[in-house]
């Protein structure tokens, strides 16, 4: 009898338990809310599209191309505005860089280019080291590393001295640390190391240090205002040069990104625009320029 009573008790308890459970979770919405929280906590969400394209104005952004994406970049910098109407405010002169960038993986890209400034060839790769994320894995910033090699092929204009090929070569190493603060605002800092195999004067160092800061503020979904400034650290600034300061405007239309900007530098390779800018904004040495980027997906089409 006692045994029976015990069984009965257990059964009643079990059914009560079920009832309570059933009531607690009757609401389908409650269960859905729980699933959403679980999913949010178990997935990592990476910050995407911190910048519109792989260049901010003259220099790089944190962004790399997607896998098997080819990016054709044509960039122009015209003459300075203070040339006046005779030179159509600089439009009569232009330096140009043609470039091809390619995404090997989603985190690694390579690129080559040729600029009319000192007839310079350049090549670089860019790798994403860290990606800003939230959710399961939390990371406050994204970090990319970009080493660039630049080779000046312009004649030395010196018939007496012979220079070896190596004196035409320079290297730039940049670490780019970026954070997308909101949908509209992204900022990055770019510590930069430049090594020149040949410095024009013995008194000048071969190794130079600079820090860049830059950012974008979106104006609409498809346009943004950009700013880029490279500061040569004291002791590394070459006499007669100024820091590079540029403001720009991005317009994105599907596969194209148009970047229009005003800057004080004619060059478009890192070593040249970071350490050899001579234009002064306050004197009107302001150049209008643009970059046009067109991307092509050249990966195999999956059905």
């Amino acid at each position: 009898m006692l045994q029976k009573k015990l069984i009965l008790f257990c059964c009643v308890f079990a059914s009560l338990n079920q009832c309570v459970k059933a009531q607690n979770t009757t609401d389908t919405t409650d269960l859905m809310d729980r699933l959403e929280i679980e999913t949010t906590n178990s997935t990592t969400e990476y910050a995407a599209a911190t910048f519109k394209t792989s260049r901010l104005i003259n220099g790089h952004t944190i962004e790399t191309l997607g896998k098997a994406v080819l990016d054709v970049k044509i960039s122009h910098r015209f003459g300075t505005l203070n040339n006046g109407a005779y030179q159509l405010f600089g439009l009569d002169n232009a330096t140009m860089r043609m470039g091809l960038d390619f995404g090997i993986t989603n985190n690694l890209m390579v690129g080559i280019g040729r600029s009319t400034y000192q007839k310079t060839f350049d090549a670089f790769f860019k790798v994403k080291i860290l990606r800003q994320s939230s959710g399961k894995k939390k990371m406050p910033v994204s970090i990319s590393y970009v080493p660039t090699i630049a080779i000046r092929t312009l004649d030395w204009g010196d018939s007496i001295n012979k220079y070896p090929f190596s004196s035409r070569v320079s290297y730039t190493h940049q670490l780019i640390i970026a954070r997308k603060f909101s949908e509209a605002l992204s900022l990055q800092i770019m510590p930069t190391f430049i090594h020149r195999n040949l410095s024009p004067l013995i008194a000048e160092p071969n190794d130079l240090l600079a820090i860049g800061i830059g950012g974008r503020q979106k104006l609409t979904k498809r346009t943004s205002f950009n700013l880029e400034y490279y500061y040569m650290l004291p002791g590394y600034k070459i006499k007669g040069t100024t820091n590079s300061l540029s403001v720009g405007f991005d317009i994105e239309t599907g596969g194209h990104v148009f970047q229009l900007h005003f800057t004080n530098t004619r060059a478009m390779t890192e070593k040249n625009f970071i350490s050899e800018t001579t234009g002064k904004w306050q004197k009107g040495d302001i150049l209008f320029g643009f970059n046009i980027s067109r991307v092509f997906n050249i990966g195999k089409k999956k059905s």
Partner: peptide, 13 residues
């Protein structure tokens, strides 16, 4: 998406 840029535009625009 198969194309990274499409995914970016889908989310952003």
């Amino acid at each position: 998406f198969k194309k990274a840029l499409m995914e970016e535009h889908f989310n952003e625009n």
